[in-house]
Design a binder for these strands. Structure first.
Length: 304
DNA sequence: AAGTGCCTCAACCGCGGCGAC
DNA sequence: AGTCGCCGCGGTTGAGGCACT
């Protein structure tokens, strides 16, 4: 390849946008619509790369962007969606109308992750401690999981399950505290709202569903050995996932065998499992997500 | 009032996916 | 089938604002 990135072109402006540049971009997009970001700067009279223009539009200038602090519903949705899909910010953003992936990512990194870590360091949630610390470490869980899809998937499910369980525990604790304490902090507001909703956790519901049954039955026996075989660099210690010493990379030709062997499934069976999970989650996502569920009593009842 | 450290968030960077050729 | 180029995503950075001493 070796293609020169568009932003390497000399003379293009970088850094903060001026109001004049914003107006040029806004006027052009409103007149012609977004698209062809590569050509847009030239057509709009901007001395910026297309990438920068797209980012400015999607994260700041778009008219449907919602400003202001996250609501308790949004807060909870982010927590639960993150437990299910991980750092798929665009996927999470798609469930929160008016919120950008960048905004959610920042919110998570500066707010939610800190909250979880503080709770973990307080000794209330050892599982969270392992998750939040290893996830931050370059040599931690996410970074050291092998490239095997099955291994990644197994680790994601396991991590999400532990995180969801710990979070439920955290919410029940903080919710009870919020019911007795009368502070005005945003976190207690959120906790109070959570306690008020006491809604089921999407991940635990999925975990306890038919999809989870299949996953558990196919992966529970000799789980540790399988995780090692599959290259999942984790070890379980009293319910806490800890990073293991890295093993030499698997031969790529053997990866598909490892994939299915890790679960004790044939390739077809594994695909069926993935399809079922996708279908279950897909229905959830296409149904409008958590905000939709919370706003609709019938949907909420159905979800329980 | 000045200095310092922390936090937030807009913006950048690098990479991968995917369609066009 | 291979290459090119655009787009979008996730991780990271750093300037500016804020709180604290």
């Amino acid at each position: 390849m070796g293609r020169t990135p568009c932003c390497d072109i000399k003379g293009l402006k970088k850094g903060p946008w001026t109001p004049e540049e914003d107006k040029l971009l806004l006027d052009y997009v409103q007149a012609s619509g977004p698209g062809n970001w590569r050509m847009l700067p030239k057509l709009a009279g901007l001395n910026r790369c297309g990438k920068s223009c797209r980012l400015r539009w999607t994260n700041y200038l778009r008219p449907d962007i919602k400003r202001g602090p996250f609501t308790p519903e949004e807060h909870k949705s982010i927590l639960q969606l993150h437990a299910v899909v991980g750092n798929k910010w665009s996927m999470i953003a798609a469930q929160l109308p008016g919120r950008t992936d960048n905004e959610i990512k920042n919110y998570w990194n500066t707010n939610l992750k800190k909250q979880l870590r503080q709770a973990a360091l307080a000794g209330e949630h050892p599982a969270l401690a392992a998750i939040t610390t290893t996830a931050d470490s370059p040599a931690g869980t996410a970074a050291t999981i092998s490239s095997s899809p099955a291994a990644r998937h197994a680790a994601q499910w396991e991590t999400a399950r532990l995180e969801a369980e710990a979070r439920l525990s955290l919410l029940s604790t903080s919710g009870a505290a919020a019911a007795t304490a009368t502070t005005s902090s945003s976190s207690s507001t959120v906790a109070a709202a959570d306690a008020e909703h006491s809604a089921p956790d999407i991940f635990l519901r999925l975990w306890n569903s038919e999809v989870g049954d299949i996953f558990r039955s196919s992966s529970s026996t000799a789980a540790v050995a399988r995780e090692e075989d599959a290259g999942v660099l984790l070890q379980r210690q009293e319910g806490v996932l800890l990073p293991m010493e890295p093993k030499p990379a698997e031969d790529s030709s053997a990866t598909s065998n490892v994939t299915t062997a890790a679960y004790g499934l044939t390739a077809d069976e594994y695909q069926v499992f993935l399809d079922m999970a996708a279908e279950d989650l897909g229905g959830f996502f296409h149904g409008g997500g958590f905000s939709q569920i919370y706003q609709s009593p019938s949907l909420f009842a159905e979800f329980q």
